[in-house]
Amino acid sequence: MLLSLRKVTKYFPVQRGLLGRPTAFVKAVDTVSLEVGAGQIVGIVGESGCGKSTLGRCAVGLLEPTSGEVWWDDLEIKGLTVHQKRVHQRKFQVVFQNPYASLNPRQKIKDILLEPLEVHNLLKPSQRLEFVKGLLTQLGLTEEDLTKFPHEFSGGQRQRIGLARAMTCQPELIVLDEPVSSLDVSVQASVLNLLSHLNQENGVAYLFISHDLQVVGYLSQRLLVMYLGSVVESGKTEEVLGHPRHPYTKVLLTASRGRGSLMEGEPPNPAQTPSGCPFHTRCAYAEDRCRWEKQQLLGGENFWEVACWKWDRL
């Protein structure tokens, strides 16, 4: 397996007591397992603040999980030497949600893009510039842009530079964190086409984080739905979007069809997660049992899972 997360949990301290010891935690990611095979596209959707970016950062080794394991190519990251980690890191890239903060403001685009090729000694030196130019053109940017600095671009142009940088590393997997969120539909279409081309031709796998169900649905084969740090449903994309099982997925789909937000109540405070099913405070079907029983992921054929005990009675 290219990437596998096993029961990954990540807590952030949010309040400290007198001695500087944390007294309260945000459970950003709570016991999440997932696998991405070579050339596979797995989508992650879920409410703002439910832990998608945190999970993505754990997957590429930028954050160390509080507990649980992250495996790359059947090796556990924790067991890798510094050298091994560096070698593997190239294959696992991430495109951040906030492109501006992730680009060095004092480097020209040319250097930003050539650097990974030089550091990892990819391609012949004479081919590098051509490769970078080709990539820019495919992303709807131009050769002229090579001599500019990150601040000289519009928001959507910057987002594509972040993408280009991840692609120059010739990775095997890219965590794409809202990679097309600030692109207009036409540019978005060409970026999605390029992503799907890279996937089919070069077998690049993606962990695709987005809140746009149409976009994730278009690209991904498997889909994970997160709520408050936990996976509440997963399965084949068509199945999840076509026949959602979890009440939260149902709400998400209805809202995305423009029928208004049907969710009752406030989103829970992630520093004080509800007991039992994390969704019970807002679920239209909640009963007593939901309030105290922690929900397990129940599975079925075709590898689907749902964390709701009464999913088949809704």
């Binding site: 959707v45 879920g46 409410e47 703002s48 949600q97 809202e178 969120s181 600030s182 809140h211 169900l213 709400v251 998400l252 809202a255 995305s256 208004g260 937000s261 969710m263």
Partner: peptide, 10 residues
């Protein structure tokens, strides 16, 4: 842009 549909609608 960075918001899911439910929060976006809200």
């Amino acid at each position: 842009t960075a918001l899911d549909v439910t929060v976006q609608t809200q």
